[in-house]
Design a protein around this nucleic acid. Structure first.
Length: 644
RNA sequence: GCCGCUUUAGCUCAGCCGGUAGAGCACCGCAUUCGUAAUGCGGGGGUCAGGUGUUCGAGUCACCUAAGCGGCACCA
């Protein structure tokens, strides 16, 4: 007998080998009908799995949150089944559930087309209607390999071969014939999968994620417990698409890119205004935080990059040029070696440390063509880069300061630092375990002292040291990696940076590479999506449009504009011969934060009628009051006084 | 870089089975002077991404190239 403890606290004994289904039936007929899985001590199991051990048992129905992942996994399986029914020469490989859905990777000589999706979906729904039993079978390892080889499933055979010998080989059989190697668990039969799924994307993917391996065809889909959830998901995706920075960037006339400059951005006046506002803000924050700003050369000789190690390790990503005199040079892909040169001029004293050297450094990297993506991944970009040269015993304090600064800046820019990834020692690494223990410990401690949650990203560190990556959450809950801090003992060594210590000895400084925005390009892209183009007034390229109602009010509009501009506001006037309705609509769609309407009435009384983006009412103020109010609202967060 | 898809006016898109290219918005002109999300009328605008081929005839079919999009890989 085994003892099972139910969620209500009751403990009952059952025969060893009883199943979740039998237990459910003993509890209630209706529960047995709806039950799809069981959870034993936190582990999900098939409903028909004979139980060998007791424990805390929960019987799950389809609407349990844990069931959703299984629904998605099962949907992947019937996708595979459907594809093999329709396209017999297709081999199956793997098909897991993922966020919002699932995928399945297939090997087939002919390419799939999205035109096939309708046919495949129809077949999947047919399989759901057939209500095929999904049955777990335990197989002998060699039999399983033989089975898959005999039916030409080389990938499945390879998976089994690579499984540890201790692993139980389980197969899941759908109906009479179709089988897939799988760890499970699965739903009891295909009808429980439901039909709230949809195939979404077709993509290439490498076998086992390695580009040296064969390329498979991956079909992505989304799956949900109910049709309403599926609808909600589709709406969510459409909403996210509306925020696409490439669309908004075009509509708001912020920037463009063109064929001759792949991965390079042409910033239009409004986009560049946004950049300048952001850069000015960042510069003030750095000035206030003890940084010094520098500017280093854009192009440097090959010998320089050989010394820094980039020529060896990074050359495929560098833009290299030759001169008529036969020199070979490279555009800088990074700012760090340049900063070390400045550090190295003259003799540095320990009293100068920590030295926080910042640069809005324009870098160029030859990124693989397939990785380019709007402003998010470009080949020419400007980092908000800085290198902190310090002693080892200053690392924790400097890191903590940096974490606090980063959080403040993200908050000012409308995003929350959700957590920090601590990227720890990779497989291939330099340095002793003691070194890594200490380095990882210092970064984790600093982050904790700054009060930010730390999540370990196992093995993601650079080969020479760990790093911190900041994860921010945007307005619709998406996560972005923005901001990084990387410890470096290697470059100072390589480029022979040193300072004179208290005892007169020469010492190596440690370098902290750090960025808060990452690159201006990418960060502006993220900001566009975060705000959906509706920038807060201090960031908006055009803060106020003065819209006269009739041409009589044009001179007055110019007077008002002049008064606002004098207060430092970015103001346009719209004196076109158009109706006020048209002007309001157009500037609202252009996401201008404030429309100031002026007509004959306002011209006489010396007032303006302000209309704020997102609200329909008007606020009538005298010009002086409007100047005071708008300039207060348009003050960047770091310049605000906290009295009002 | 790899796989799939896409590329028609400034933008968003239609264009059937191959028969000489279309809409809305934008733009230009004229009229209209209007009180908070589209005033009316008129006009200009295309080497259908580029190339090669099939055909009497190609936006439409085939192939090549490029870029864009979605993934994969990459992001020392």
């Amino acid at each position: 007998m085994i003892d099972l403890k139910f969620p209500d606290g009751a403990v009952r004994s059952f025969d060893r080998g009883t199943t979740g289904r039998a237990i459910a039936e003993s509890l209630s007929k209706s529960l047995a009908k709806k039950a799809v899985l069981i959870k034993l001590d936190g582990t999900l199991l098939d409903l028909d799995r004979p139980l060998e051990e007791g424990g805390a048992l929960e019987i799950l129905t389809r609407d349990a949150p844990e069931a959703l992942e299984v629904i998605r996994h099962d949907t992947a399986h019937i996708l595979a089944e459907a594809v093999q029914e329709l396209f017999p020469n297709t081999q199956v490989t793997i098909g897991p559930s993922i966020e919002d859905g699932f995928y399945y990777d297939f090997a087939r000589d002919e390419p799939f087309s999205t035109d096939d999706f309708a046919k495949i979906e129809a077949k999947m729904k047919e399989i759901v209607d057939r209500d095929e039993k999904i049955v777990r079978e335990v197989w002998d390892r060699d039999d399983a390999i033989k089975h898959f080889e005999s039916i030409g499933e080389a990938y499945k055979a390879e998976i089994i071969r690579d499984l540890p010998g201790t692993e139980t080989i389980t197969m899941y059989r759908h109906g009479d014939a179709w089988k897939d190697l799988c760890r499970g668990p699965h739903l009891p039969s295909s009808k429980f999968i439901g039909k709230a799924f949809k195939l979404t994307k077709l993509a290439g993917a490498y076998w086992r994620g390695d580009h040296n391996n064969a390329q498979l065809q991956r079909i992505y889909g989304t799956a949900w417990a109910t049709d309403a959830d599926l609808e909600a998901y589709i709406t969510r995706i459409e909403e996210a698409e509306k925020r696409d920075h490439r669309k908004i960037g075009r509509a708001m006339d912020l920037f463009h890119m063109q064929e001759e400059g792949r991965g390079m951005v042409f910033w239009h006046p409004k986009g560049w205004q946004l950049w300048r506002t952001l850069e000015a803000y960042m510069r003030r924050r750095l000035d206030d935080s003890g940084y010094v700003e520098v500017k280093t050369p854009q192009v440097l000789d090959r010998s320089f990059w050989e010394k820094s190690g980039h020529w060896d390790k990074y050359r495929p990503n560098m833009f290299i040029c030759e001169t008529v005199e036969g020199e070979t040079l490279s555009l800088k892909p990074m700012n760090c070696p340049g900063h070390v040169q400045i550090f190295k001029v003259g003799l540095r004293s320990y009293k100068e440390l920590p030295m926080r050297m910042a640069e809005f450094g324009a870098c160029h990297r030859y990124e693989p063509s397939g990785s380019l993506h709007g402003l998010m991944r470009v080949r020419g970009f400007t980092q908000d880069d800085a290198h902190i040269f310090c002693r080892e015993d200053q690392i924790v304090e400097e890191t903590e300061k940096f974490v606090r600064l980063t959080r403040m800046i993200h908050a000012d820019l409308g995003m929350e630092t959700a957590y920090i990834n601590l990227a720890t020692r990779p497989e291939n690494r330099a340095g002793s375990d003691e070194f890594w223990d200490k380095a990882e410990g210092m970064l984790a401690e600093a982050a904790r002292q700054a009060g930010v949650e730390v999540v370990i990203a196992e093995g993601d560190g650079a080969f020479y040291a760990p790093k911190l990556d900041f994860i921010v959450k945007d307005a619709i809950g998406r996560e972005w990696t923005c901001g990084t801090l990387q410890l470096d003992y290697v470059l100072p060594e390589r480029l022979d940076a040193e300072y004179v210590a208290e005892d007169g000895s020469r010492q190596r400084p440690v370098m902290l590479h750090r960025a808060i925005l990452g690159s201006f390009e990418r960060f502006i892209g993220i900001m566009i999506e975060n705000y959906a183009g509706k920038f807060p007034i201090w960031l908006a390229p055009v803060q106020v449009v003065i819209a006269p109602i009739t041409s009589d009010a044009n001179p007055y509009a110019e007077t008002v504009a002049a008064a606002l501009r004098k207060a430092g506001l970015r103001v346009d006037t719209d004196v076109r011969n158009e109706k006020i309705n048209y002007k309001v609509r157009e500037h609202s769609l252009a996401k201008v934060p404030v429309i100031a309407v002026v007509g004959r009435k306002e011209a006489e009384t010396g007032e303006v009628a302000l209309r704020f983006l997102g609200s329909e009412g008007q606020t009538i103020l005298s010009v002086a009051d409007a100047v005071a109010r708008l300039s207060a609202e348009a003050t960047p967060p770091d310049l605000r006084t906290r009295d009002a």
